[in-house]
Simulated assay, not measured.
Amino acid sequence: MQKNATTLVAPRSAPVVQFSELEAPFGYVYAIGQLSANFSSRDVEKEYLQLLTPADMQVPTEPQRLYNVLSRKENIFLAREMAWVLQVENVATYFLKPRSQVELEEMIEAIKPDDPTQIEYDVVIGVQEPAYAGEEAGLPGAMVNRLFHFTARSFIDSVPPPALITQQPAGPAKDQSMATFRLLVSNIFNDMLQLAANTGDTDETRALNYVSINYPDIYTLRWSQTSSLTVDTLAFRGVDVQHSKLSGTRRIVDVIFRYENPSGVESRFYTSVDVTGQFPFLVTKLQPYFER
């Protein structure tokens, strides 16, 4: 099905070129979870055991041993035979297939054990496929076109602090403000991940998942709405997601954030996300929301 054809102005001697966005046969995926590599069959597991070296056997954990074996270039053939599964909230959600060796190598790196004290996350962007017919029978498939990996701590530390903090003079007060800010980001991030505990295969969930990890303004909003460093004036109450009235030839979704002050008065802010294609993008920046 052809949608939203865009005509480019070409020289008179050249034919008119048209680009269009084609709908994926089974839809798109933008999901947040944890990637795991599993043996797709008994012979694949046996082959893995034969590839273990004496040095591998000295490694104390099985996840590290598995990563060591799969990450060696000569063992890329085995990585192709593994059953790669994305789990959301510890539930197997998608059987993943890499589009090319580039994505396969990214998947291998994603299972490399990080800091054991940190929760790790993987974001999968791709195209839905029919259910896999192997040992994971009935599990929906997804062709991975992009994958990135992060820990909760690295994400929280990556959110830029607001000017209210950065403009403070160096010292204990600024350090305390930064610690308070990071704690706030951590709390909202955990709330957003609970909301993002979904399969990421609908317009609404893809928009929500995209905003959760790509739009830091949602984590600094409470600071931007007050001149106080205590930021206790607004409590985060949740998120509503709905199709925007701006939707026409494109699919646009409003992600609405609800806050409440100590008096019980609710305020709402929203951002719009275009989810027409495989890669969502922002249409409007975060701003006050008024019922239309």
Rank of each mutant, 00 (worst) to 15 (best):
E109D: 14
T7K: 14
A55I: 12
F19Y: 15
R146L: 14
A137L: 08
D191G: 05
G27N: 07
P15D: 11
F181S: 03
F150D: 15
S228H: 09
S244M: 05
Y94R: 01
M82N: 01
S13P: 10
L286D: 13
K73D: 10
L139K: 01
A5P: 15
P140T: 01
E136L: 09
Q167R: 08
M192A: 02
M143N: 08
M192I: 04
A14N: 12
Y30Q: 11
Q194R: 08
V9L: 15
N214D: 12
S244H: 03
L195Y: 08
T233A: 13
L66Y: 08
V85A: 01
K112W: 08
Y132R: 03
A170H: 13
V85I: 11
S224N: 15
E62N: 04
T7N: 13
S267N: 14
R80P: 00
P116C: 00
Y259E: 13
E89T: 11
I32P: 03
L22Q: 10
P54Q: 11
V44N: 02
V273G: 06
L193P: 10
I213W: 04
N75A: 05
L22H: 12
V16G: 11
N209H: 04
S154T: 13
R250W: 06
M82T: 01
I188D: 02
K174S: 10
P262W: 04
R12K: 14
S267H: 14
G126I: 00
N261S: 04
N68L: 03
Q58S: 12
I32H: 03
F26T: 05
E23I: 07
L229D: 15
Q194T: 12
L86Q: 02
N90S: 12
L139G: 09
A79W: 00
E204C: 07
S13R: 11
I218S: 05
L147I: 15
A83E: 11
Y289A: 07
A14C: 12
N261D: 09
G277L: 08
Q101S: 09
Y67S: 06
F189Q: 03
N75D: 00
I165K: 04
D254V: 07
A207S: 04
N198V: 00
I213K: 01
G264Q: 09
G200N: 00
T61D: 11
I165P: 10
P11V: 10
P280H: 04
A142F: 01
V16K: 09
V273R: 05
M192W: 00
E109V: 10
T220D: 01
A24I: 01
D191Q: 04
R258H: 15
F290L: 07
P25N: 08
R153Y: 15
K3N: 14
T6C: 05
D191F: 02
V253G: 03
V9Y: 13
K46I: 10
T93D: 08
G200Y: 01
M192S: 01
S224Q: 14
A37S: 06
V16Y: 09
P116V: 00
T249M: 07
R65G: 08
R258Y: 13
P54E: 09
V102Y: 14
